[in-house]
Amino acid sequence: MILWQLFVAFLYIGTFSYGGGYAILPLIEEVMVTNLGWLTFQEMTDILSLSQVTPGPIAINAATFIGMRVGGVPGAMIATTASVLPQSIALMILGHFLFQDRPILFMERALHGLRPGVTGLVASATLSVCLASLFFTLSPLVIDPFALVAFVTVFVLQHSKKLSIFKLVAIGASLGIVGEAVERLLIS
């Protein structure tokens, strides 16, 4: 019964969470905190901070976390599946029509507007990520030295050598850990 409720709740959230990222939070608050009372507001904020230090979209993280709390591992599986189900069905239908050989005229025309626009969206997300990762605070501007060293190193490496993205990210993580070790040595 509770698993069924969990399924329906996340099906609802998955259907209406347009826009991605933080757009899902008002929905989770409405359904989980206000209507069902499965989560306190404080716990919702905890999920948010957990999402920042773990990979993956907030929507998946939240579904897994709430599912675990309400119904253990089966709950987590049901909640996560339900939250991506509407999206997957819609994309399977879209893909079916799209990846046939003949191009769809109206889609071709719409893409003339979508291509440059999506580049603008990615640019905006990039600026947000850069600001959040390279600075501790924005006013006053306080630089995070570990992030900056990793940023510059990877930026230069990218243009001189052809390393895979996984190696570049691993180099970044190692530089952060080395930085922490150096900082401790200097202090002690």
Binding site: F155, A173, S174
Partner: peptide, 23 residues
């Protein structure tokens, strides 16, 4: 946290490069 800080710096550089090419 230190590893994550380095990682986010690396991701920032990768994203800037990608935006340049997409543009």
């Amino acid at each position: 946290r230190a590893g994550l800080r380095g990682m986010s710096g690396a991701i920032s550089a990768i994203m800037i490069n990608a935006v340049y090419r997409l543009a």
